[in-house]
Design a protein around this nucleic acid. Structure first.
Length: 415
DNA sequence: TCTGGGGTCCTAGGACCC
DNA sequence: TCTGGGGTCCTAGGACCC
């Protein structure tokens, strides 16, 4: 049976989240800034129409903000994550198989469904009614084509946010109008190399490109893309519950710093966050990497652990030992990060550790910490190495909206 | 003065072994 | 003047995504 995929994608997701609790902003141009209020990472249609590009540094549009022509928000990920989860649970309830692809996108499989188009309209309506976020839906026989259909749904008003590319003629028309660089999976480098072979549209790639040549020049990645464009599905729905293979956490600092103590604190904080994520997927890790960045150089160190662990204390210890190795005084650091890799399931490895009586104790301590932080809010309890408040390195967030849905102190109330 | 963060997948090439 | 071949495993780094 021919497969049918749908891609559900939230429109200007972060901006739409800000609008849910601010009816006064319904038609106002909004932008949301990256961590540290560095650059624009989301824009409403109104802001796009004003010519504000994606990724532009905030200082370049500061004038518009001062003149009150745009509304500006720092990113508020607790809010976005919570609204995202509400949308995803609707999808899981309504559709047989769902792959959450990112915070604002999910693929669902609708193979065998009699009328996928009306189903999609219904889905869109439910999501808007229950969560207040507008979505666009693209329907097609492969994921790459569904991505394309979604783009058309979003950008051509008369489609009312839903578009299907199931008939061959429709697919060909759409692909002829699609620049090769706009195909999902074709980035800058691949795009340039394809253009140099006179493959300029998605249709060229689908129709004319010689398979042997594609395999040789662009490996199986390229070949898969071509097949997907031809309507042959070869990128399956992934298991949404699959465990992460590595976990990283990093931040640019609000203020650059020379001090080792700041770096120690930052790394301890990053490890705490990453380790908590490690434990939510019941994994242990065997490698801890850290890196530090100045304007001109990146310092990197990876440390292997003798025993796999999820104990924040051991991981902090490893990170701080690595810091001692690579820290250079007199340098001005702007960013640091950690990565936990070599992950294993904790069930898988614990058998090897029967002789380690400390393991149970560690486990209970970590569980208790996670529980307290879950109940009382993030960082309610943390290790001394993480330092106290007023961290000079912590990030700038000058325009943050309240955590309307995840913090009792910040619930919205209406007069 | 000010330009993010968190992932995955794939490949080339080195190390090592027989 | 000549210096094997085949295999596996691991890792760094590129490319891409949102």
């Amino acid at each position: 049976m021919k497969k049918i995929f749908a891609l559900i994608d939230c429109n200007s997701f972060y901006c739409s989240c800000e609008r849910v609790f601010r009816a006064d902003l319904k038609t106002k141009p909004i932008v949301v800034l990256s961590n540290n209020d560095g650059c624009v990472i989301a824009r409403t249609q109104e802001a796009k129409n004003m010519g504000i590009p994606m990724g532009v540094p905030f200082f370049q549009i500061h004038e518009l903000y001062k003149q009150n022509k745009i509304e500006v928000f720092s990113s508020n990920f607790s809010l976005y994550t919570d609204l995202s989860q509400r949308i995803m649970s609707i999808l899981k309830k309504e559709c047989p198989s769902v792959q959450v692809y990112s915070i604002d996108e999910a693929f669902v499989e609708l193979t065998g469904l009699h009328d996928p188009l009306s189903f999609a309209y219904k889905l869109k309506k439910i999501i808007y009614q229950k969560v207040g976020i507008p979505v666009s839906i693209g329907i097609a026989p492969t994921k790459v084509l569904a991505k394309r259909a979604n783009h058309i749904a979003k950008n051509e008003n008369h489609n009312q946010g839903v578009f299907s590319l199931l008939q061959n003629e429709d697919i060909n028309v759409a692909l002829k109008q699609t620049n090769i660089i706009d195909v999902w999976g074709v980035g800058k480098s691949l795009g340039q190399r394809l253009s140099s072979l006179k493959i300029n549209t998605a249709y060229d790639f689908k129709t004319y490109a010689n398979e042997k040549l594609i395999q040789r020049e662009f490996t199986k990645v390229g070949l898969k893309l071509k097949h997907e464009l031809m309507g042959i599905s070869c990128i399956e729905l992934l298991d949404p519950y699959q465990e992460k293979k590595e976990i990283s956490h990093s931040r640019s600092f609000g203020q650059k710093t020379y001090h080792k103590k700041d770096l120690q604190e930052a790394l301890a904080n990053f490890i705490s966050t990453a380790a908590a994520r490690l434990r939510t997927q019941s994994s242990l890790c065997t490698e801890v990497s850290i890196y530090l960045k100045t304007d001109f150089l990146t310092l990197y160190e990876k440390k292997k652990l003798i025993n796999a662990t999820h104990d924040t204390r051991l991981l902090i210890q490893a990170a701080l030992q690595s810091l001692e190795k690579i820290y250079l005084p007199q340098k001005r650091y702007k960013k640091a990060g950690v990565r936990l890799s070599g992950l294993h399931s904790s069930n898988e490895l614990q058998l090897n550790f029967f002789d380690n009586t400390n393991l149970l104790k560690q486990d209970r301590l970590m569980q208790t910490i996670d529980k307290i932080n879950h109940l009382k809010g993030k960082n309610s309890i943390q290790f001394g190495a993480c330092g106290l408040n007023n961290k000079t390195w912590s990030m700038k967030q000058n325009f943050k909206s309240p955590c309307y849905t995840t913090n009792w102190e910040e619930l919205p109330y209406f007069f």
